[in-house]
């Protein structure tokens, strides 16, 4: 069963790391799948991949280019990245645009935790990928993948908007190749969830003056 990871009006060969996607598809195919579930899954993935809403998150220079892809010339609304949400609860992916410092790292982690599953992370620019020019600094995290799992890396300092669009399309392809039913949708039970939450609560209450307002 060949799953469709094409992006409309883009050539398959134009994408660079097809091996990764093919490997991913192969692993999925090895397990075999039910036809009905598979079809339903295709529809869900089609929907999800075409409706990825970003979190408005930016720390430095790349943020301006992130605004530029939202603006008239590059307009990522064309691909369905339309609605940039300011609340992490409603966003589908976080574009880590800019340097992440030691002080910001727990905040970023918290933002990521606040997002609803399924969620994705794009590391944009040299700083988010590896610390970039500030790698040797005493206050910079060298790579956000040390804190949160990254799905797509977009190199550049800052990346051109075209590069960002390309990276976003790669994310769409990844989402298309995934499987929502079985695997991605972990579906943990209510009880388990309660337990995890309580664990987290206890930890938080240890911290003096824990800010209840939720949003970092």
């Amino acid at each position: 069963m060949k799953r469709n990871v094409n992006i409309k009006s883009m050539k398959y060969e134009d994408f660079n790391d097809n091996e990764y996607i093919e490997q991913m598809l192969k692993e999925l195919r090895d397990n075999g799948t039910n036809v009905i579930v598979g079809c339903l899954d295709d529809v869900i993935e089609w929907g999800r991949s075409n409706s990825l809403w970003p979190l408005t998150f930016a720390t430095s220079c790349c943020g301006i280019e992130f605004m530029a892809i939202g603006a008239a010339r590059y307009d990522f609304a064309r691909f369905g990245f339309e609605v940039a949400r300011s609340s992490p609860r409603q966003a589908d992916f976080i574009m880590v645009a800019g340097t992440i410092t030691h002080k910001m790292a727990p905040v970023l982690k918290r933002l990521y935790d606040q997002m609803a599953d399924p969620k994705y992370v794009i590391a944009t620019g040299g700083c988010a990928i590896s610390g970039g020019p500030f790698k040797k600094s005493y206050h910079v995290v060298d790579g956000v993948d040390k804190i949160i799992p990254v799905d797509v890396y977009i190199p550049g300092c800052p990346p051109r908007p075209e590069a960002m669009l390309y990276g976003l399309m790669q994310l769409q392809r990844k989402v298309k190749a995934q499987r929502f039913l079985g695997g991605l949708n972990k579906g943990i039970s209510e009880k388990e969830y309660e337990r995890l939450m309580r664990e987290d609560t206890n930890k938080a209450e240890d911290l003096k003056e824990y800010d209840e307002s939720g949003l970092a």
């Binding site: 089609w46 929907g47 075409n50 409706s51 809403w53 369905g80 339309e82 609803a116 599953d117 399924p118």
Partner: peptide
């Protein structure tokens, strides 16, 4: 049919339970 995609996406998103 962009909105249909959004509907699928919305339906499959996690509904987060908020502490307290």
């Amino acid at each position: 049919i962009q909105v249909i995609c959004d509907v699928f996406k919305m339906l499959t998103k996690e509904i987060i339970t908020i502490r307290h």
